[in-house]
């Protein structure tokens, strides 16, 4: 007995099956006809890359970097999250040698805590460095860290934080993706090749003459050139000393230069030295702080 219901059911099944077969055939045909040859090397490289798409290599994503390695002779050691192992495997795929490279890590070229910066003016605008940088006179130093945390927000790895209003890198977590260096409106974060666990860096970006720096900062470099005369690896560029990282190695001695520095212009960053660890070895760490719910008042800042 033919009823509308049975006809509808059977017809629905038949129509959908036919449609599926037709579409499958068309797509299968298209897959063959429109097949684009992808270099097997590109696919192999894509498998090795971490796939974080962080853009640290300077290409839009891992896919584009893989293309560039195969077709545009890009360096195989550009992937910071992948590190040395990744570079090694890329080099194997491409049949080239890895050029010796140290992992690059972010370094903040400013050492002034908030209370060490002079000529500060209360700033009530948008709490980002990008905005504060547009306004003159937030603080006397027009080169140094503004301490409003654009870099902290840019970091996907929780590796840069504000400590006393100064951007401070946590080298346990930093993977060298350059996100903070790109976002800093004052360009005081640079990528330094970490050839050893502790690296000496010049912790100031102020290019002005000594008296001008003293007027705006308690710790900034005054350009006295003492360090460049004491350490072979340092030379002056403008009013700031520069460390020659091409020749830097673990044996480089900066003790004299650091002793001569009248300010706090040079810092070691990275892992603490053995002496530092020994000095604090006897100290007991504070107990874990438990949550105190009386303090969870709403401290949201409302402005404007």
């Amino acid at each position: 007995m033919v009823t509308p219901v049975t006809v509808t059911m059977v017809l629905a099944a038949v129509v959908l099956s036919l449609l599926a077969i037709a579409m499958a055939w068309v797509l299968g045909w298209a897959n063959k006809t429109f097949h684009v040859e992808v270099d097997p090397k590109v696919e192999a490289i894509l498998d090795v890359l971490p796939g974080a798409n962080c853009g640290g290599c300077g290409y839009v994503g891992c896919g584009e970097y893989a293309e560039a390695v195969v077709h545009a002779d890009a360096d195989v050691a550009l992937c910071a999250p992948g590190g040395a192992g990744c570079a090694q495997r890329l080099a194997e795929i491409m049949g080239v040698e890895v050029t010796e490279s140290a992992p690059y890590r972010a370094v903040v070229h400013c050492a002034a805590k908030r209370y060490q910066r002079l000529q500060q003016t209360p700033y009530d605008g948008e709490v980002t460095c990008a905005s504060a940088n547009l306004v003159g006179g937030v603080q006397g130093c027009t080169y140094g860290c503004l301490g409003l945390g654009d870099c902290t927000r840019a970091c996907d790895y929780d590796a840069i934080h504000l400590v006393d209003g100064l951007a401070t890198v946590d080298y346990e977590k930093c993977i060298g993706c350059k996100a903070c260096a790109r976002t800093c409106p004052r360009n005081i974060i640079t990528m330094v090749p970490f050839k050893c666990e502790r690296m000496l860096v010049v912790a100031c970006s102020n290019q002005d003459k000594g008296p001008d720096v003293k007027a705006v900062c308690e710790v900034g470099c005054i350009g006295c050139t003492a360090c460049s005369r004491k350490a072979e690896l340092m030379h002056m560029e403008g009013n700031l000393p520069v460390v020659d990282y091409d020749r830097y190695d673990a044996t480089a001695d900066f003790t004299e230069a650091r002793k001569k520095c009248p300010r706090e212009g040079m810092l070691y960053v990275g892992k603490p030295s053995a002496e530092d660890l020994a000095a604090v070895a006897g100290e007991t760490l504070p107990d874990r702080v438990e949550a105190d719910f009386r303090t969870t008042v709403d401290d949201t800042e409302w402005r404007g």
Binding site: V7, T8, L11, V15, L16, M23, V26, A30, N31
Partner: peptide, 27 residues
Amino acid sequence: TKVDLSVLSYIMYIFVIASSVQFVEMY
């Protein structure tokens, strides 16, 4: 009496959209 297949509309549309987009992408 009419046979009405419009119950198939959703599944058919998704099917058609997905496969045509696949096709266009390859093309």
